[in-house]
């Protein structure tokens, strides 16, 4: 059975006073249990919108979303979200942010246990010594790591991540990807992950499948048949890797030329 399934999902933004805007049209895809999928596509094509539907923050205007075979409405404890923009609470220290998250799913631990667990997960993302810093005292990459630690610490079955490393420099980004690879292999029960990214390398390195999205729809699904555990130095430069990279690049380009072709037709 599929862990997640989106069926004919449409979404119209209908914010007060504004005109209706259709952001998703007939989106269909499913994710198997333990699978890591990346959604890739040009800016504004509806990636974040898709994730907001998966997280339950928005309801589809039409269509349905199933989790574990059951129709899902609203947010749930089985899903954890790492947002594109830092989503830590500014009045809580790094540790407090994480333990606050744990508390919401695990109401019956003692304060000491919360703190211990929070410290463990902060250590896992390489933030030892920063437990008592407030978000404003942390760099963007560090804040994102706290957010990842919080989501991991809550132990959801499904992790939804929207460009989790978007605002991070190349070096830090590579570190965070490696960290994520490592953490995911450590987990006894493999998590189901949907990640939005703009970075083709990142998508190939991390995922089992890449969904290429364009113009409110999923246009293409690409299997990433690289063995795990993966290490970037082993993968980058292999033929399979180069083929995959080329394939995704071509999707971007063909879509660009299609669009230019369309406009040419109008003239």
């Amino acid at each position: 059975m599929d862990k997640i399934k989106l069926e004919n999902v449409y979404l119209e933004y209908n914010d007060e006073g504004n005109e209706r805007y259709s952001a998703l049209e007939d989106v269909n895809f499913s994710v198997k249990e333990g699978e890591f999928i990346s959604i890739i596509g040009s800016s504004g094509c509806g990636k974040s919108t898709t994730l907001s539907i998966l997280s339950g923050l928005r309801q589809p205007t039409q269509g349905k979303i199933y989790i574990d075979g059951e129709e899902s409405v609203g947010t749930g404890k089985n899903r954890g979200v790492v947002f594109q923009h830092y989503s830590l609470f500014p009045w809580m220290t790094a540790k407090k942010n994480v333990s606050f998250g744990i508390k919401q799913v695990n109401g019956d631990l003692s304060k000491k246990e919360y703190n211990k667990k929070a410290e463990e997960f902060l250590e896992a993302v390489g933030l030892e010594g920063f437990e008592n810093k407030y978000p404003f005292q942390l760099s963007g990459g560090m804040q994102q790591r706290v957010a990842i630690a919080r989501t991991l610490a809550m132990g959801p079955e499904i992790m939804l991540m929207d460009e989790p490393f978007g605002a991070v420099d190349a070096k830090n980004r590579a570190d965070l990807q490696d960290m994520l690879l490592e953490l995911l292999e450590d987990q006894d029960q493999k998590k189901t992950i949907v990640m939005v990214t703009h970075d083709i390398d990142e998508a190939i390195l991390l995922s089992d499948r890449i969904l290429f999205m364009d113009n409110k729809k999923i246009k293409e699904e690409i299997e990433v048949n690289l063995e795990r555990p993966r290490r970037r130095q082993d993968i980058f430069g292999t033929d399979t890797y180069r083929e995959l990279h080329h394939k995704v690049m071509m999707l971007f380009y063909s879509n660009v030329s299609e669009k230019i072709g369309d406009e040419g037709g109008i003239i």
Partner: peptide, 16 residues
């Protein structure tokens, strides 16, 4: 709004 969304995905109660 991002903070509220963040809180909603953590499934906080109304009181929290």
């Amino acid at each position: 709004k991002k903070l509220l969304d963040s809180a909603r995905t953590l499934n906080v109660s109304s009181w929290t």
